[in-house]
Each structure stands twice: as C-alpha cells, then as structure tokens.
C-alpha cells in the first residue's frame, strides 16, 4: 500500500497545473527514490521529468515500488478542490484500481476525500545520459516566462544564443523581429534575482515557442530556472522545487534541414 502525506499540498496543485497541458496521461512512480513521473507530450518533442524526494513528505510510505497511471486533467480537476494551504495525502491499496486524495484544511476543521480511477498506461522510460553542456544559464523564472510570452506575440520560434555577451533570445515573424539579451548579473539584493551564465563554448539553438510557453507554466514552483544548452541537443529546462526535488523539461530543438 501507499500513503504519501504532503503538508505543502499547494505544491502538488502547482505541479499538476504546470504539466497538464503538455501531457495527457502519465504513470506516477513511487519508490525509495521518491515520487516521480516521466512523460512525453503527444508530439514527442518534450518530456517532463518530476521528482519529489521522500524527505519532502511528512509521511512517505510505500512498501513496494508502485506505478499509478493517471489522467492528468482528471487529477488536476480533483486537486483544484484542495485549498492552497491544505495538507494533501495520497493513498492507494495494493492491487486497487483507484487512488484517494485526502485534503485537510490547516486547522483540521475540514477533511475531504476524492477517489480517482487509475488507468493502464504503457510508457517507455527514456534514458537521459549525463551531458556536459556548452552553456548553463540560471535566471529568474519570471523573467524567462516573460521573455517567452513577449516573443511569442512576434514569432513562432525562439533562437537562444549564449555568447560572452550574455544570453540572447531572438524571434522573427511577419510583423518584424525581436531580440532580448540578458547579461550576467550577480549584483542583486537576493540570490534568486541573479542571472548567472556558465559558458564553455558559444551555443545557439532554436525552439518552438509553443513548447517554451507551455513549460513556463512551472514558474510558480521556483523563483529561478536553469537552461542547459548544447548545440544540436535537446535543452534541459529545470525548475528546482525547494528542498524536495525538481521538475525538468527536455525539449528537442528545431534543426536546419
């Protein structure tokens, strides 16, 4: 059986909101490593990988590895019924085809349980090799989201280039072109406001803005985002979930034919 009690229930709500538009169905895996998910979008361009480590849960009990197939839209519907400050507990009995979400208000004066049907999902796990990236950019997540949103009103693709000058986001469309350059900036009041650029060699990659905008839905999960880039390889866009884990998106680039 499985029982996971998450005091910061709002976090699970944010996780679902950040992935439900990209992926329809996914297996949530529960093991000693943590509560995890890996799922690909239907166009096979983006993969989302989530890890919530056991330490982040007040109670983390699963007596064997368990995989639970869920429709993410339905799961999001259920989690929307939880308050942002509620404690959320996931429960599943061995062999059951349902999962129960229990929501407790912080003052324990309201307790609700929602039972959701599980589904069988055949999903292949991808192996992501450790890579030495040409450039790694850490910047405020809200700034990255703003840039992606702004550029998508001009064009459909974004070219992300890292040079000694900084990181450049460029697009072009019928009405014109747009360039946004962010320079390294560590002279900030709070560490999360910094832009840090580690460059081993210059890199330039093109991505569909539709996908970039979709993955910026994870912005509420973290103040910062890390972009790991290598020429001709998928980008890794990571939002760290404080002291608990991460949500990572692997996004295939567009390549000149």
């Amino acid at each position: 059986m499985l029982e996971l009690r998450l005091v910061q229930g709002g976090l699970l709500k944010k996780v679902l909101e950040s992935i439900k538009d990209l992926v329809n169905d996914a297996n949530f895996d529960c093991s000693a490593t943590g509560f995890s998910l890996q799922a690909m979008d239907s166009s096979q361009v983006a993969v989302v990988a989530l890890l919530l480590r056991p330490e982040g849960f007040e109670r983390y009990w699963c007596d064997r590895n368990i995989s639970m197939g869920m429709n993410l839209n339905n799961m999001a519907k259920m989690l929307k019924c939880a308050g942002n400050d509620d404690i959320i507990t996931l429960k599943a009995e061995d062999g059951s085809d349902t999962v129960t979400f229990m929501f407790e208000s912080p003052t324990q004066d309201k307790i609700a349980d929602f039972e959701m049907k599980l589904m069988d999902i055949n999903s292949e796990r991808l192996g992501f090799p450790e890579a030495d990236y040409h450039a790694i950019v850490r910047m405020p997540s809200s700034e990255f989201a703003r840039i992606c949103k702004d550029l998508s009103s001009i064009g459909n693709t974004v070219v992300i280039s890292v040079t000694k000058e900084g990181v450049r986001f460029s697009t072009r469309g019928d009405i014109g072109t747009a360039n946004v350059v962010c320079r390294q900036n560590t002279a900030v009041d709070k560490p999360e406001e910094a832009t840090i650029i580690e460059m081993n060699e210059p890199v330039s990659l093109t991505f569909g803005l539709r996908y970039m905008n979709s993955l910026t839905k994870a912005t509420p999960l973290s103040n910062t985002v890390t972009l790991s880039l290598s020429s001709g390889l998928p980008a890794v866009v990571e939002y760290r979930i404080a002291e608990m884990g991460y949500i990572r998106f692997y996004l295939a680039p567009k390549i000149e034919e």
Binding site: V45, L126, P234, K254
Partner: peptide, 14 residues
C-alpha cells in the same frame, strides 16, 4: 527553415 525534430532521435528507451 528549421524543422522540429523529436526527442526519440536523441534518447533511446531504457
């Protein structure tokens, strides 16, 4: 024009 490629080109299943 740049063409969108799929992730499976880069990562095999495990």
């Amino acid at each position: 024009l740049a063409q969108q490629v799929q992730l499976l080109i880069f990562y095999g299943g495990v």
